[in-house]
Structures are given as C-alpha cells and as structure tokens.
Nucleic acid binder design. Sequence first.
DNA 1: CACTATACCTCGGCTGACAAGGTATGGAAA
DNA 2: TTTCCATACCTTGTCAGCCGAGGTATAGTG
Lengths: 112, 112
Amino acid sequence: MTERDPTLMSGIPELVVLRLLAQQEMYGYEIARSLKVLSQDALTLGEGVLYPALHTMEARGLLRSRPKQVDGRTRIYYQVTPRGRKRLERLTASWQRVSEGVDRVLGAPSHE
Amino acid sequence: MTERDPTLMSGIPELVVLRLLAQQEMYGYEIARSLKVLSQDALTLGEGVLYPALHTMEARGLLRSRPKQVDGRTRIYYQVTPRGRKRLERLTASWQRVSEGVDRVLGAPSHE
DNA sequence: CACTATACCTCGGCTGACAAGGTATGGAAA
DNA sequence: TTTCCATACCTTGTCAGCCGAGGTATAGTG
C-alpha cells in the first residue's frame, strides 16, 4: 500500500502527526493532547480521525508501533520510520507551497 | 442546501474562488488561469474540481451566475452574493487559524 | 457508587477532490 | 482542407479520508 500526494492539501492530520512523532515516540491519546496544546487549540484531532489515521499510516510503513503497559493501562507508542521521514519532508514542502499560494491569493488587493 | 464548515480545512478551492470573485466578476476558465498566476503555480484547480465547485456554491446561494456571449463563445460569469461574502469571512478566519496552528506545530523544536 | 480521565477501538455516512472523458467554437498553421 | 491548439463549458464515477457517534475497559476521586 503506497501513499498518494494530496493534490490540494487536505492531509493535515497526517502531516502534523508525522511531525510530532519525528520529535519523539508518542501514543495516541498523547498525540491528541499535544496537538491541541501546541496549536493553541487551532487543531483538534478527534479520535475518529486520529486512530484510523495512525492505523493507515502504519499499514503504509510510515509508522511503527509497540504496545506498552503503564499502570494497568495499555498504551500504543508510535515512531516514525525512515519512509515516514521522507513522507514528512514531502508533505512539509507541499504544505509550504500551498499555504503560501493561498496567502498570496488572499492577500491580493481587494480594490483600487 | 446549507454549507458546513470544514472541520480541519480542506475547502481551499471554495475559499480561493470566493476570494477571487469578491474582487470582480469572473468566468470559470478565467478563474482557473488567475488562480494559477496569482498563486505562482502553487494552486491549480483542474476543471473536474472547479466546475462542480462553482455549481454547488451557486446551489448554496454563495454565487450567482449569468451567461454572456463573447465572440460566439459562451462564458458564464459568477459573482459573490452577500451570503457568499459572509462565508468568505468565516473561511478566511478559519484558514488563518488552522494554517497558523499547523505552522506552530511544524515550527516546534526538533531536538534539544 | 458514580463520575471523570485515561486509553484504545470500529462503524457508517458523506463530502468533496480528482481523473478521465465529452461537446463545441475560433483561429492559426500545414 | 485538415489539423491543431486555445478557449469554454460540462458530467461521470471513484475513492480517500474526515467526522460523529458509538463501544470497551481501567484507575482514581468524591
């Protein structure tokens, strides 16, 4: 199973999750909380988005996971594979391109 | 038929089209070309995206259209309705929020 | 005992992006 | 003439993936 590039950038969940995990191993619940805090509430990944996303990313070889028991609770820690890092680079570049493009359009003069 | 807010922002086509049309009446083909130029090739709306988008936006009362004959060719000019302008405001705010959020996450320290 | 926070998950729906195709005109080149 | 490109519109079918709503289970607190 291979990844396709989002032509017009929707894959924000994938991008930010990869970015977080590139810094350190984390588990799902932690990712959700971190994202909210880091983005200052601008980004909130619901569990119906996050968990499926993690699973498909792992299936695509972008992430690896390992379960860990902590206080009788199971956490599943994810880390980025080399392939995931490449993907992160591409998505980041793509995001920059697109977001700058949008900003240019938005910034175009209204009148005069 | 009413609009729903994109929870995590995908509706870039809708946003930029509204923005262009808020400046001046334009027809489809023109919108596509303008977008490419303005965004410096970062944004390219294929016709399979653009035309359906225009139609649904009109159906939702965000746009109004009128056909015009020019040199034996039919152009369909679109303009933004008041409702469309409100939508544009919301989408713009939402875009700013989200894109800043993403940038904050991307900008978070890698190491140290 | 109830409630909240933690921590994982799945299901079904729907939107909307996209590729690929189709029609038709005008003008320029061959 | 015919071919080709640019203009200008359109539809169809597909599919990813976002989302809400639901479900399970444990630990700790009031």
